[in-house]
């Protein structure tokens, strides 16, 4: 028996919007720790990792570890029928081939049940080792989204270079080139607007903007985004979900041949 009750149903809606363009079908894993997912995009270039910890739910019952295959587009469609302030409950009986999403409005005078078929999905689970990254940038999530969107109108890839002074985003295309530098900030009064750089070594890596733009669908989940890079590893873009966990995107770099 599985029963997960989330007071902020809008959060689950945002989580689905942040994943559905990248991944079609995925297994949600439910355990006493929380509700999680790990899935790759169809070309195996990017990976998304989601964790919603059990403590973040108002009620969390998961009698045994269970993996539920879902089509993320269909799940997003069902969740779009919930109001942003609705309480959302996920329910599944042991061995059942469907999951129920229950939506309750804040005044609790409207209750809706949506039942969705589960699917069998063969998915590869990758082991992601803990790593020390050479450069970590924390910056406003909206600013990062704006930069990725702007640069993708000029070119297909972005070179991200981190130095002690700041982070530079560069692209080139048929019409010309573009460079955006975000300097490290030193203010302390508005931490949500800060650009913070933790650097062991300067890093310069090239990534496909198409993927970065798809990751920035998670922007409504967090005010800040953390970008971790090492020259020999995929980059990690993390949006922390307050009080619940995180959504992390891993993206393999491009290399000069």
């Amino acid at each position: 028996m599985l029963e997960l009750r989330l007071l902020q149903g809008g959060l689950l809606k945002k989580v689905l919007e942040a994943m559905k363009d990248l991944v079609n079908d995925a297994n949600f894993d439910c355990s006493p720790t929380g509700f999680s997912l790990q899935a790759m995009d169809s070309s195996h270039v990017a990976l998304v990792s989601l964790l919603l910890r059990s403590e973040g739910f108002e009620h969390y019952r998961c009698d045994r570890n269970v993996s539920m295959g879902m089509n993320l587009n269909n799940m997003a469609k069902m969740l779009r029928c919930a109001g942003n302030d609705d309480i959302v409950t996920l329910k599944a009986d042991d061995g059942s081939d469907c999951i129920t999403f229950m939506f309750e409005n804040p005044s609790q005078d409207k209750i809706a049940d949506f039942e969705m078929k589960l699917m069998d999905i063969d998915s590869e689970h990758l082991g992601i080792p803990d790593a020390e990254y050479q450069s970590i940038v924390r910056m406003p999530a909206a600013e990062f989204a704006r930069i990725c969107r702007d640069l993708s109108t000029i070119g297909d890839t972005v070179l991200i270079s981190v130095s002690k002074e700041g982070v530079q985003f560069s692209t080139r295309g048929d019409m010309g080139t573009a460079n955006i530098v975000c300097r490290r900030t030193t203010t302390v009064d508005k931490p949500e607007e800060d650009v913070i750089i933790e650097m062991e070594e300067p890093v310069s890596l090239t990534f496909a903007l198409r993927y970065l733009n798809s990751f920035t669908k998670a922007t409504p989940l967090a005010t800040q985004v953390t970008i971790s890079m090492s020259s020999d590893l995929p980059m990690v873009i993390e949006y922390r979900i307050e009080g619940m966990g995180y959504i992390r995107y891993y993206l393999a770099p491009k290399i000069d041949e």
Binding site: M40, S43, H44, V45, A46, L47, E124, H125, L126, G127, I128, P129, T157, T206, A208, L233, P234, Y250, L251, A252, P253, K254, I255, D256, E257
Partner: peptide, 14 residues
């Protein structure tokens, strides 16, 4: 030419 690497070339299957 920038060659796209795959994520599976970095992480091992569990």
């Amino acid at each position: 030419v920038n060659q796209q690497r795959q994520i599976t070339s970095f992480f091992t299957k569990k």
